[in-house]
Amino acid sequence: MSAYNFAYLDEQTKRMIRRAILKGLAVPGYQVPFASREMPMPYGWGTGGVQVSAATLTPDDTFKVIDQGADDTTNAVSIRKFFEKTAGVATTEETEMATVIQTRHRIPEAKLREDQILVYQVPIPEPLRFLEPRETETRKMHSLEEYGLMHVKLYEDISQHGAISTAYAYPVKVSGRYVMDPSPIPKFDNPKLEMEAIQLFGAGREQRIYAVPPHTRVVSLDFEDYPFEATKANHPCDLCGAEDSYLDEVIMDDAGNRMFVCSDTDYCRSRRKAGHQGRMATEGAA
């Protein structure tokens, strides 16, 4: 433990990141450039999220990491261990208990509280990137609020697929001003972006931090005749029977049998503990 400064990064770096976070909170949805450091993990594995978490954590915090909703996947386990080792903070798998939650591609099903912080790992922070490759131009479009192009993408979706087929990283407008990429969360999670907890977004490779303060209006972009829809697999969870949670589809065998399970493992576990049972739940599986 003593071999590392608290939470791996040096204090100057953490101050620099905190300044970017504060600016991000002051201008909701605006991408604040920051001097991203090299972290002991490859780009694309959450270097942005890890730096934001490192700058946010205090010794009293309880830390939780999820990857696609799960606490027990490689990315989640290694980042949790990283902070256990370098910060010595308490960690948990229970959403309720955590004060800082780092996430990749999901928002937990349980409602988050005012005293919690949700940190997202963001691969590509620029929602206009695939439409306009020039950074100089996208920055200008943000500053002048020229967002017609974002709707061109949705138009293309409808003209090709008959519906808005963008299913994740669905663009939102934050506080009536900036169009923001909510990181690749499923659009099922978009309505949850208006929450009581602080949401921080870190993109390490792209060197950007942005934020959504609590109780901020977040609107998913759409057309009048093709309104936004939060979608999920039309199925209850096969383990806990939940009908309101986002589901993973798991292929069971070569015969094409499959099951649907909550992608939020903590939500599923706590429901089974409370006695809920799905179609494939076995006795004592929880």
Binding site: H151, V152, Y155, E156, F223, E224, D225
Partner: peptide, 27 residues
């Protein structure tokens, strides 16, 4: 032109840029 966007999207871009938000009308 935007070469990776359909003809309809190309024509609709200016309409959407000035605030048109009805897919059927734009099309």
């Amino acid at each position: 032109l935007r070469m990776s966007v359909s003809a309809g999207g190309n024509i609709g871009e200016r309409l959407m840029a000035v605030g048109d938000r009805h897919y059927g009308d734009i099309r």
